[in-house]
Amino acid sequence: MKLFLALITFILSLNVLAAEPAKSLKSNKSRQLSKEQVAYTLEKAGFPREIVPVVTCLAEYESNFKPTAVNRHNTNNTKDHGLLQINDIWMKDCNLNETDLYNPLKNARCALKIYKTQGLTAWVTYNKFKKTCLAYQIPNYNTKNIAEIIVRNNEVM
């Protein structure tokens, strides 16, 4: 019986050692991130904290929080990459290559550049799911006055 318990304990300890940390952003990039991980990444990339829930909502609709998501169905034969589905045409402006766009932080930094130049309407998803995204909730993020914040910052709604 003691040998059996020792064997079970040993096997369980191997499973614990092999497990990936749940919160690691540098872990397997093909893995789906949580909305909290995406929000943290957007904030780290420089998005204003007040707008993070809205952009997190965009990431959910654009890629289902998958850093390696790719859309190859654009009418102009370009592709959209990563969390916020950054189009090929932005690689030069963001000084990135295609592989970089699958890195959540680099993708978010490029998305920030797009946001600063075109506002949220740069994403067709925002136009389609605006009401849902403006009400999107993430623990510890206040979205109560999000519309006022967007207007105050002269951002295109």
Rank of each mutant, 00 (worst) to 15 (best):
N28K: 09
K29G: 07
R31K: 15
R31V: 15
Q32S: 14
L33M: 15
S34N: 11
K35G: 00
V38Q: 03
A39V: 08
A39P: 07
T41E: 06
T41N: 05
L42C: 09
A45W: 07
G46K: 09
G46N: 13
F47E: 00
P48I: 00
P48T: 01
E50R: 09
E50W: 04
I51D: 02
V52M: 08
V52D: 01
P53V: 02
V54F: 11
V55W: 01
T56L: 07
T56D: 02
T56V: 04
T56A: 10
T56S: 11
C57I: 01
C57Q: 02
L58P: 07
L58G: 11
A59W: 03
A59N: 06
A59V: 14
A59C: 14
Y61V: 15
E62G: 10
S63K: 03
F65I: 04
F65H: 15
K66V: 11
K66S: 05
P67Y: 00
A69D: 09
A69S: 14
R72P: 09
R72V: 04
N76R: 13
N76P: 15
N77V: 00
H81Y: 04
H81V: 00
L83M: 06
I86E: 00
I86S: 02
N87S: 12
D88A: 02
M91C: 06
K92C: 02
L96Q: 12
N97W: 13
E98K: 11
E98S: 08
T99V: 09
T99K: 15
D100G: 12
D100S: 12
D100R: 12
L101S: 10
Y102H: 14
Y102T: 04
N103C: 07
K106Y: 12
N107E: 05
A108K: 03
A108E: 05
R109T: 00
C110W: 07
C110A: 05
L112R: 06
I114L: 11
K116E: 08
G119V: 03
G119M: 10
T121K: 15
T121M: 10
A122N: 11
W123Q: 06
W123V: 08
Y126H: 07
N127V: 00
K128D: 11
F129W: 12
F129G: 00
K131W: 09
T132I: 14
L134Y: 06
L134K: 08
Q137L: 08
I138D: 01
P139L: 01
P139D: 02
P139Q: 02
T143G: 15
T143L: 11
T143K: 15
I146S: 05
A147N: 10
A147G: 01
E148C: 10
I149R: 13
I149L: 10
I150Q: 04
V151T: 14
N153T: 05
V156Q: 13
M157C: 12
